[in-house]
Amino acid sequence: MEIVIAIAIGVLFGSGVWLVLRPRTFQVITGLLLLSYAVNLFIFIMGRLSINLPPLTLEKGPIDPALYADPVPQALVLTAIVIGFATTALYLVVLLASRGMTGTDHVEGREPEL
């Protein structure tokens, strides 16, 4: 299972990096979204992969950590998703503003001279 997740994150991250380096704003924002998926998955698996383990306990007294998933990365990833979502949405607004003001979707705000 680890290897599948690792390859998935690698593919997402690689595609994201390639798209971020492209000259059109739409490609850049798609790249940013892919990067944020990759990063969120990465944070998530840093709590180690596990199946059918609850992250929380309601029992009193000492517990066995092996029976529970690590709740901290789950909380972190939730925060990271919200923040990443908000900032990407903000970028979308700037992208539209730039398109409207300059009339081109090139990241430099003008078409390259060929």
Partner: peptide, 25 residues
């Protein structure tokens, strides 16, 4: 400002991703 802001936002978003990866590691 929109042009400079667009580049500024992308760079900072990407560096935030690096921040998260570092924190997760």
């Amino acid at each position: 400002r929109v042009r400079a802001g667009m580049q500024y936002i992308v760079i900072n978003l990407v560096s935030s991703f690096f921040f998260l990866i570092g924190v997760a590691l």
